[in-house]
Amino acid sequence: MIPLLHDFSDCRVLVFGGGPVGARKARRFDHEAEVVVVAPEFADADFGEATLERASPDPTEVSEWLDRIEPALVVAATDDAAVNAAVERAAGDRGVLVNRADHSGERSPGAVVLPAIARDDPVVVGISTQGGAPAVSGVLREEIEREIDGAGALAGFVGDLRERFADLGVDGPHRRDALRAIARSDRIRALVADGQTDQAREVAETVLTEVRNSSE
């Protein structure tokens, strides 16, 4: 499997299953997508901003829900293996991405595994064991969260510099090398973390000058 980031803005995600797993899946997407959860009953859990549809579709009725909702992704998270299998088949027939919560290991084409996520926006790191050992993914996420603390501010700072250097006409190779050196600089990272962006920018300009001079 190949990790990808997918923009679900203005998309719909359809979740079958109203238990804790369905709730967790719904929360994963509701900050970006329109989420609809279908289940005969719903656990006392946080489903975020998802729309809850009380229904109990059997395997022959699953496809009707996909045709009605037209999701970009469908999640099979019920406790009925036959329903989950029907969701997987219906998604495959329509070329829709599918995440089957009751499966691990080998998966069908179009299957999606939702990784554990460490986030410090705009930095996002996904960790997956391809569904085989979620506990390991969770432990690694905790470790990575500590490692990337402050990375979001640094990414924003370097992103602004990238645009500034381009506006100044800095050529591609010099711009790339300078930005990498800036991202590696402990001093700049400390200044950005402390909110001293003006001072960090001065140091960054010095780094750019050094990179340019080193190639002459």
Rank of each mutant, 00 (worst) to 15 (best):
Q199L: 14
E70Y: 04
N213Y: 09
P134D: 05
H31R: 13
E88L: 06
H103R: 14
L208R: 05
A193Q: 09
S104D: 13
D171L: 12
A183K: 03
E210R: 13
E147G: 03
A133S: 15
G150W: 04
A91T: 02
D7F: 09
H6P: 00
A55H: 01
G138L: 02
P71R: 02
T129N: 07
V139E: 12
E216R: 11
D194R: 10
A153I: 04
H6C: 08
L154R: 00
R24A: 15
E205N: 12
D120M: 06
D80I: 05
P57G: 01
A190R: 15
P3M: 09
L154N: 01
V123W: 02
V139S: 10
K25E: 03
E32L: 14
E163A: 13
I127W: 07
D7V: 07
A91H: 03
G172N: 07
T197I: 14
P59Y: 03
P122C: 09
V139F: 12
A193T: 13
R164Y: 02
L4Y: 13
V113Y: 10
S63N: 08
E70C: 13
N99I: 00
V38L: 01
E216P: 02
G22R: 01
P59M: 13
L52P: 05
V123L: 09
V15C: 04
L73Q: 00
A204H: 01
G132R: 15
D58N: 12
R54D: 03
Q199M: 09
G105E: 06
A77C: 09
D58M: 08
A190L: 14
V112I: 15
E70T: 12
A183W: 05
P134F: 09
V139R: 13
T129D: 07
G48E: 00
P3L: 09
